[in-house]
Write a protein that binds this DNA or RNA. Structure first.
Lengths: 315, 315
DNA sequence: CAGTTCAGTTAAGTTGTACTTATGTGAAAT
DNA sequence: ATTTCACATAAGTACAACTTAACTGAACTG
C-alpha cells in the first residue's frame, strides 16, 4: 500500500486547490505562497505523468485525472483529520462525548444530567445522537451506551443492570385497573422498540407470566420507547416500561407499578468505550456515576418478582 | 480543516508502524531506516503532546492516543491510495472497468463480449459486480451501467433505449399457447426485479393492454431478471421479458414473442462515466459499441406495438 | 485602448525536514 | 555470561519545501 503514493504535501496542496478551485486560496489555507503551491501541483503532475489542472486564463479547471483524484483525496484527508482530532481528544479530560439512543438519552440521561454536573463540574458532557455509531474512535465519540445482547470485542464493555419490563402507569390509572384481569380492559400501549428481543417480552408474555391467557392487539404503538413512556405519563394508558427508562419515574411517584412482576428480557444496556479509555479520569468518573445512579434505585428491582421471558415461550 | 494536522510523513510512519506493530517492519515498508522511523514517531508525539506507542522491551504497544489515531489514519491513507490509483487509471487506455447489475452482465454483456473483444482487441474489459457503486472515481470504476429512471448529475450520462417488457417464451411453448386468452392458462413467470417501477409493468398491466381482464397470481417468482429469463429459456413458462435482456435471445430464435405488444416502462439502462471520461478513447469505443449493438436489434422493437404503462393504470 | 488587476508561472536562493550512518541501551533469548 | 533484538539517540547531510521577486498573459476598467 505504500510506494504507490506521491509526495503527501503535493497531494495535500492538490486537495486544497481542488476544493477551492483556486491555487491562491489553497495557498492561503495552507499558509504558503501561491508559488509554493504551484510547484507542488507541478510536482504532483510529474509524478502522475499528466496534468491534474487545466490552466485557463483567470481560473483553473480539473482535468479528467484531477476529477478522479479530487474526491478521494478529500475523503482521505478528512479521515486523517478526524483521526488526529480523536487522538487529541484523548488528551482532553474536560470534554466527554457520549452517544446513546434517543430513549436512554431522554429518559435516563436527561433527568440525571443536573446531578452529574453537580458531582463533576469539571467535565463537560456532549451528546451525539444516533445509534449507527460503529467505531468510537472513527466517529469521535468517547463513550457509547448501547442496548441489546451482544458483547463487543475490541472495546471496553461494562454490562449494566439487566433490563426487565413491567406494567407501569400513572397512579390515577392504577386506581381504575386494580387487578390483572381488569388490566386486560385497560388501554395498553405498545413499545415496538423491544420487538427485536428474542425471546419476546411483550404484553402477551407478561399476561402469560401472570397466568392470564390474553392476547393484546389494539392500542397505540410507538417505535421509540421514550415516546411510549411519555404516553403513559400523559395518562394515555399502561405501558410495559423498561427498567432503565422508568425507574426514575417510579422512584419519583410519577408512575407506579402495581403488579410487581417483571419480565427479565436477557438484554441490557452496556457502557462502551475504547480499550484503555476506561482509565481516563473523566470516563471512569462517568462510568462510576452511572453505576452508582443505577444502584440508587435497586430497591425497585428488589421489590419485583423477576421471571425470565425465556421460561415463557408461547405454546 | 488544514492546520489541524501533524506532518504527514510522521502520520504515515505512524500508520505503518501501527499496522505492523513494529518500527523495524514499518521502516522496511517505507524504505527508510529504523532510525528515521523512530524520529518520525517522536516528532508525531511531540506534536500531539503525548506518546502514541508504549515502548516495551522487545515490542511496542499502542497507547490510548495511538489506539484512537490508528484506525482513522489507515482509512485515510487507504482513501488517498485509492484516489491515486484512480488518477493513474485515467492514464491507462487498455483496461476498462465496468460495473453493471447481474441481469445486464449475464444477459446483455456476456453474450456479446466476444464481439467486443474482436472489435477492440486492445481493450481489456473487467467487470466489477454489485449495484451499490455510488461514486465511480472512489470505487475505481470507469463505466457503470444502471437501470432506472434517474438522471445523475455530476456524471456523464447516456440514456440507452427505453426498456419495454413483452411476453417471451420458447418456440415450443408458443405453439401450446397460441392466443392471448390461452396465455391466461400458461405457466407465468414473475420477474420481481421490475416491481419497483411506477407505473407498474407487470402481467396484469400487460393483459389489460390486450383488453383481457386477468389477474395473474401464481407462478414462479425471481428476484433477478436474468434468472426469470433463464427459467423461460428452460421451458418453465412465459416471462415478461425486458427488452435489453431478451433481444439477443429473440434475434437468435431461442425465444419468441408471439404477441408483439410491449409495455413501455419509462425506465431505461443508462451508460455512466465520470464527467470528461467519455472522451477517453477506450471508453468512447465501449460506449459507441454498446449503442451500435443496441441498434442492431432495433428491428425487434420496430415490430412491436408499444403501449406506455402509464396509460394503463389500474382502475 | 492603455492601464490595472488578477491568477498562475518561473527563477534563484534559503531554510528546515527527513534522512543517513554510527553508536547506545536495556531486556530477553541462548 | 554473551549474544541478539528492537528501538533510541547523536551528528551530520541532502534534498524537499518554501520564500522573495520578477514574469506572463488574459480580462476587467474607465
Amino acid at each position: 500500500m505504500s510506494d504507490r503514493l506521491p509526495p503527501l504535501t503535493a497531494l495535500r496542496a492538490f486537495e486544497a486547490a481542488a476544493r477551492h478551485m483556486s491555487f491562491a486560496r489553497a495557498a492561503e489555507e495552507l499558509h504558503v505562497t501561491p508559488a509554493a503551491l504551484s510547484f507542488q501541483i507541478k510536482s504532483l503532475e510529474e509524478h502522475l505523468g499528466t496534468q491534474v489542472f487545466r490552466r485557463l486564463n483567470r481560473a483553473v479547471e480539473l482535468t479528467e485525472a484531477g476529477l478522479a483524484l479530487a474526491p478521494g483525496t478529500t475523503d482521505g484527508f478528512q479521515a486523517l483529520a478526524a483521526a488526529w482530532r480523536a487522538a487529541e481528544r484523548t488528551q482532553d479530560n474536560q470534554t466527554l462525548i457520549v452517544t446513546a439512543g434517543p430513549a436512554f438519552t431522554a429518559k435516563w440521561m436527561a433527568p440525571r444530567l443536573y446531578e452529574f454536573a453537580q458531582a463533576h463540574p469539571e467535565v463537560e458532557l456532549r451528546f451525539a445522537a444516533g445509534l449507527k455509531i460503529v467505531d468510537l474512535a472513527r466517529d469521535g465519540v468517547d463513550v457509547a451506551i448501547r442496548f441489546g445482547y451482544g458483547t463487543e470485542t475490541d472495546h471496553y464493555t461494562l454490562p449494566l443492570a439487566e433490563e426487565w419490563v413491567c406494567p407501569v402507569m400513572t397512579p390515577e390509572m392504577a386506581t381504575r385497573f386494580p387487578t390483572v384481569e381488569s388490566l386486560t380492559k385497560a388501554p395498553l400501549i405498545f413499545d415496538d422498540s423491544i420487538r427485536f428481543l428474542k425471546p419476546t417480552s411483550d404484553w402477551d408474555t407478561w399476561f402469560r407470566a401472570m397466568g392470564v391467557d390474553f392476547s393484546a392487539t389494539t392500542g397505540p404503538r410507538f417505535s421509540q420507547a421514550d415516546h411510549a413512556i411519555d404516553a403513559a405519563l400523559a395518562g394515555v394508558g399502561v405501558v410495559l416500561g423498561r427498567r432503565a427508562l422508568v425507574v426514575k419515574d417510579l422512584a419519583d411517584g410519577r408512575l407506579v407499578a402495581p403488579f410487581p412482576t417483571a419480565l427479565q428480557t436477557g438484554a441490557r444496556f452496556r457502557f462502551l468505550c475504547a480499550e484503555g479509555a476506561q482509565n481516563r479520569p473523566h470516563i471512569a468518573a462517568f462510568r462510576d456515576w452511572i453505576v452508582a445512579e443505577i444502584n440508587k434505585n435497586s430497591h425497585i428491582t428488589e421489590a419485583m418478582t423477576l421471571i425470565p421471558s425465556k421460561d415463557l415461550t408461547a405454546p
